[in-house]
Simulated assay, not measured.
Amino acid sequence: MNFRLLKKHGKVYIQFEKQQEKLAKILWARPLTGRWKEISIVDEKKKEIIFLDSLNSIPTESRQIAKDELIRNYFLPKIIKVFETKSHRSCRYWHVETEKGPRKFLMKNPNRDFLCISQDNIILRDHIGNCYEIVSFRKLDRSSKNAINKII
C-alpha cells in the first residue's frame, strides 16, 4: 500500500495514492513491550487506518515524521537513581532522578504498574499514566537497588 505522511501546522496527515489526505495519529501497537516494532496509524476517531510491522514499512521520506511523532507522544524518562521508596497499604511512593531531572510519583497498583520488559529492563507507570524506564536494573547503584527491592 503506497502512502506518505505529511506534517502541516503541527499535525500529521496520511495520504494514499490519488486520495485526499486525512488527519492521522501514529501509535505504537504495544507501547510498553513493543516499542519501535508494530505501529498503528489511526484517524481522529482512533479508527485504524493502517497497521505496520515496523518503522521500515513507512516510506523513507515519511519515516522521520513517524519517528518524531512517536518520540513526542511517548515521552519515557529513564530513571538513573532511586533516592527513596515508601510503601503504604497498596501504594508505592517513589523519589527518583531521571535523565530529565528529579521526579516524585505514586504507583497505586504495583502488580499492574511494574512491568518487567526483560530480566534487566523495567517500566514503571504512575497513578496518572506517566511511564518511567529503568533501562538496566543491574547498572543501578546499590542504594537504588535496595530501595526498589524494599517495595516490590
Rank of each mutant, 00 (worst) to 15 (best):
residue 67 K to C: 06
residue 68 D to V: 07
residue 69 E to L: 07
residue 70 L to N: 03
residue 71 I to A: 06
residue 74 Y to W: 03
residue 75 F to I: 15
residue 76 L to T: 04
residue 77 P to M: 05
residue 77 P to S: 09
residue 79 I to G: 00
residue 81 K to R: 12
residue 82 V to N: 00
residue 82 V to Y: 00
residue 83 F to N: 10
residue 83 F to P: 02
residue 83 F to S: 08
residue 85 T to M: 05
residue 85 T to C: 07
residue 85 T to D: 08
residue 85 T to W: 07
residue 85 T to F: 08
residue 86 K to S: 11
residue 87 S to R: 15
residue 88 H to I: 12
residue 88 H to L: 13
residue 88 H to V: 11
residue 91 C to E: 04
residue 94 W to D: 00
residue 95 H to T: 08
residue 95 H to D: 05
residue 98 T to S: 05
residue 98 T to K: 05
residue 99 E to T: 15
residue 103 R to K: 13
residue 105 F to S: 01
residue 106 L to E: 01
residue 108 K to C: 04
residue 108 K to R: 10
residue 109 N to S: 15
residue 110 P to H: 08
residue 110 P to L: 06
residue 111 N to Q: 13
residue 111 N to D: 14
residue 112 R to P: 04
residue 112 R to I: 14
residue 112 R to K: 15
residue 114 F to M: 10
residue 114 F to Y: 14
residue 115 L to M: 13
residue 115 L to A: 05
residue 115 L to Q: 13
residue 115 L to C: 05
residue 116 C to W: 15
residue 119 Q to W: 09
residue 120 D to L: 10
residue 120 D to K: 13
residue 121 N to P: 08
residue 122 I to K: 00
residue 123 I to T: 14
residue 125 R to E: 12
residue 125 R to T: 15
residue 126 D to I: 11
residue 127 H to S: 15
residue 128 I to E: 11
residue 129 G to Q: 06
residue 129 G to F: 09
residue 129 G to E: 03
residue 130 N to L: 08
residue 130 N to H: 10
residue 131 C to P: 01
residue 132 Y to R: 10
residue 133 E to K: 13
residue 134 I to S: 00
residue 135 V to C: 07
residue 136 S to K: 04
